[in-house]
Design a protein around this nucleic acid. Sequence first.
DNA 1: TACTCAACTTAGAAACCACGTC
DNA 2: GACGTGGTTTCTAAGTTGAGTA
Length: 745
Amino acid sequence: MTQDVTIQDHLDPFKEISKKNKDKKKKKTTFEQEGKVAKKKERKEKDGNKSDADKKDKTKSKTKKKSESSKHDGISSSVTVKTEPEDEDFVSVKKNGAKQGEKRARQEEANDDPAIKSKKKKRKSEKDKEQPATEESEDEGKKRIKKEVKDEGDKKPKKTREEKEAAIALKVKKKEEEEQARWRWWEEEKYEDGIKWKFLEHKGPVFAPPYDPLPKDVKFYYDGKPFQLGLQSEEVAKFFASMLDHEYTTVEIFRNNFFVDWRKEMTLEERMVITDLAKCDFTEIYNYHKVKTEERKNRTKEEKLKLKEENAKLVEEYGFCVMDHHRERIGNFKIEPPALFRGRGDHPKQGMLKKRILPEDVTINCSKDSKIPVPPSGHQWKEVRHDPTVTWLASWTENVQGMVKYVMLNANSKLKGEKDWEKYEVARKLKNHVDAIRRTYRDDFKSKEMRIRQRAVALYFIDKLALRAGNEKEEGETADTVGCCSLRVEHIKLHPELDGETHVVEFDFLGKDSIRYYNKVPVEKKVYKNLQLFMENKQDGDDLFDRLNTPMLNKHLQSLMEGLTAKVFRTYNASVTLQQQLQELTDPEDTVPGRILSYNRANRAVAVLCNHQRAPPKTFDQSMANLRSKIEAKKEQILLAKKELKEAKKEAKENDTEKLRKVVESKKKAVMRGEEQLMKLEVQATDREENKQIALSTSKLNYLDPRISVAWCKKWDVNLEKIYNKTYRDKFAWAVHMTDTDFVF
DNA sequence: TACTCAACTTAGAAACCACGTC
DNA sequence: GACGTGGTTTCTAAGTTGAGTA
């Protein structure tokens, strides 16, 4: 329950300064703010001009995503709600993130980890075999044995020992070859500043295949009558038709944008006829698309193999480049095909036509002395450049947002790896400065200058909550999302007291990719007071930090530590959290699977801290339903076991023999076991529910210093493959090779 | 100093694929 | 062999940052 607590001004020394400063600052404020305030006014006016209905619509569509993600807010310790009981130091948030649901963690990580999962399954089936009588009813037992016998008969002929050994040897050989071919760039000297390569040769990007027209019998209908579209407009119609089962095509902005752009592709005659999207019937095109998708899925083994080979050939030819005598994999050598733009959240440009890119749109970057890529016949490149200060191989400008797109190297390349290593080194360096930086911004909470106070509070949030910097965005060009510096008054609520905590800030905003950030955080009193001050005389749509932007913040950070920017705090706090959690959770007595569980729990703590979410899996509801029916079955089983226990007790009372006493004991155990299993299932259900929206991979790939993981694996004798799949091992090869057990972030 | 743009990293969704179960 | 499930890979949108320019 929220209580209104009046803060006694006379007891608050901060208020004194604030009062004094406020008057002084007011004049300055008007001056300094002019630019930003003007913008805000514009926004307000815009908002003001909008009708209430418009506003409602906007809120509705904005909250649509919110309501989806908050469906589970009712569940205690929902993952989207991060609480922090104490504000003593900066560890608390991270600790809390990790400790959310101590009980659930082991179980839940087991759900995440395939190795553990299969082991669990294995353990379970072994257990089942050992104790069928206690685990299942007589009937079930019979069925199971019958099935096992049948399965035994159905089993395919097993591989011989020799075959198995040969397969393993082949795998080992392949691994060794790969290892030998690996460019150990981390053992070489770095190039002078700014130079990325000395020699670069590649074959240019692969273009999207030409449009494959619809068969004659697949018709588009307008106003109930078949209408023959020209190739150009048919292609765009097909983009829309093949998305009919996607939510996008029900969204008004998407439909409108599509229709406007589609009409641009039409002939005059087509444009004269097709004037209303609601009268367009794409069903036949949609069905045709579905059939084609099915056909693709149902290809024979031979067809699949042939395609695989063709693809491998393409990768072999275009998927690699030669950089300084080494063959490096290209990350995205295929040019993005034409499509309808799928902006995320309430993106004002969703549905617009992303046009086909031709060689004439593409700039090539390579060495002067390399074999210059040959454009497809009849075409030419927009430009051929030889710029060794950039990492891209080709680039083009897309038409929807006017942004430059690049062809770049794969994450396992030298260029990416070196940058990654550097990133973690900067974050490690922050470790030595962070105490002083925290002291500085705490001092700045009391600064006479408003802009310094705002900077201090923003930095406090970036450090404590791992918020993104939050650049300013052009209104109407992208979805309305914010980061720290761009927070608006409407995004926070101040609670003097909430759920037994004082000075609580409730955050609720859409961050990158329109992912909702919702968190209730108790903050230091000075932060709270400052926020009150920042919000004074402002309206919902006004900037919370009206005298701060990201360049200003980063400039300040540079003065505190070379190379320091806002995003370094995210890397730093994520890696520190992982290290702390591993230290806390790893039990020397644990088995290897137990240790892996600890690792995954630590990883999860970081994902929660960084607010890495995902859309619930499509099969989520079904798998939850299955789990729930398992729970129901277990409950019934317990009831039955209890009934049997009661009867056994009665019988033993009437006729007290050793045999009957044993029966009672075994029935008791059965009840207890059943209850334990039920509890586990229930915990598992809660876990799955809460894990529904958590994405672990993003932090693993981008925020956690891989050396922490490698060192941990080596120290605790855990196979690295249990933590990192091949992609990760390749990307972090530098860390794998240079890290020993004693590495400390 | 504000603004724009290029270059890069970070991000989730979707497609793909391998494996287990029925 | 069909199907479901979940991990991996691919795709591309959406951020951050720094440099150049007016």
